[in-house]
């Protein structure tokens, strides 16, 4: 049995459908392909980007985004350089160094507004003050993540024995190093989840010891920014929107992140990811409000640029305007 629909009505319905499709297309333009590499393995540190992709927020902004798995041996700067990624997440320190080395990258958004890196020691190893680290083995990450702690040691004239730190804190837990590098949102919780209590630890937040450097920021090549500034703006907007969504829907976000993490055969622990997501919210909004989200403050920038230049890690301190794409994309 066929259903007879009156012809005028059918025309009207088809017209509506067409208008709807056109409307979507005109709002976002044709979908643009783009790729993004976070600075580490999938985890809630990057929940905003994964949720923006998961919930179609990038699509809404006209981007067909591919998130490349980050991790050890995958340098976001190299991915940018080789054109394997259009956008990359990097620490400000790393980005400044790469730019100084000639990689023409531009800062497009600042996600983590302050330093969240810690040096953690066991109280029973006798370390109570920063000076106690002098001459002791300290776990430091490679891949430019050692710039802030080395700056701290430098400022306090400490000579530590650096030991390259792996992706875990097991060497520290077994007593192989006196102190370990730890991100507040990640390794610190891993240490707590290995049975260490907070009162058994001495914690030195780098923020409090002269290295409050903003961390995760979003970067693109100058060329990309020049060629398609709308794409850059759309990427930043969608990413920040993704973060808003993640903070507003933590349980859904955790479900998604655990799935992504398991797909990457990584230890997936809900409590750990919950801790991380909560800390990311604090780091993105140090004042708790919306103002300044995504923005790199000129003063913060200058502190980092001057410090890198002072330590000879860059040849010259680049002007803020040259390094930072004007914040049009920001809300």
């Amino acid at each position: 049995m066929t259903m007879k629909v009156p012809t005028p009505l059918l025309h009207w319905m088809l017209g509506c459908l067409l208008c709807l499709l056109c409307g979507v297309a005109t709002a976002s333009g044709p979908l643009k392909k783009a790729s993004f590499i976070p600075l580490w393995l999938p985890q809630a540190q990057f929940a905003g980007y994964y949720m923006a992709a998961e919930k179609g927020i990038y699509l809404k902004h006209g981007i067909d985004l591919t998130i490349i798995d980050g991790g050890p041996g995958r340098s976001p700067a190299e991915y940018l350089r080789d054109g394997r990624a259009d956008f990359a997440a990097m620490w400000l320190t790393t980005a400044l160094q790469r730019r100084d080395e000639g990689l023409p990258l531009v800062h497009v958004a600042q996600v983590v507004q302050q330093s969240s890196m810690l040096l953690v020691a066991r109280k029973d190893s006798g370390i109570r003050t920063l000076a106690d680290l002098d001459g002791r083995k300290v776990g430091l990450w490679g891949g430019d993540f050692d710039i802030p702690p080395r700056s701290v040691f430098d400022q306090h004239r400490l000579k530590v024995k650096p030991v390259q730190q792996s992706g875990t804190v097991n060497l520290f837990l077994r007593g192989g190093v006196a102190a370990a590098s730890a991100m507040w949102y990640n390794e610190y919780h891993s240490i707590l989840s290995a049975g260490m209590d907070e009162d058994e630890l001495t914690v030195f937040p780098l923020r409090d010891h002269g290295a409050n450097y903003p961390e995760d920021g979003l970067y693109a090549l100058q060329e990309t920014v020049a060629r398609d500034p709308q794409l850059v703006d759309a990427f930043v907007r969608a990413s920040l929107e993704g973060w808003e969504y993640a903070f507003a829907h933590p349980e859904e976000t955790l479900d998604v992140m655990l799935r992504v993490i398991k797909e990457a055969h990584l230890p997936a622990n809900r409590m750990h990811q919950r801790w991380m997501l909560t800390r990311m919210q604090a780091l993105m909004r140090p004042t708790g409000g919306q103002d300044g989200v995504g923005e790199l403050k000129r003063k913060d920038y200058q502190v980092v640029a001057q410090e890198l230049r002072r330590r000879g890690l860059v040849r010259e301190a680049l002007d803020y305007e040259v390094f930072v794409k004007a914040g049009r994309a920001l809300p």
Partner: peptide, 26 residues
């Protein structure tokens, strides 16, 4: 394990993902 991580468990999802401390926290 030495860190309290689950090495074997009837719930295979716990293995490596959970530790007795994360279970306690949850």
């Amino acid at each position: 394990s030495r860190n309290g991580a689950v090495v074997t468990h009837p719930v295979s999802d716990y293995i490596m993902n959970e530790s007795i401390f994360s279970l306690a926290e949850a």
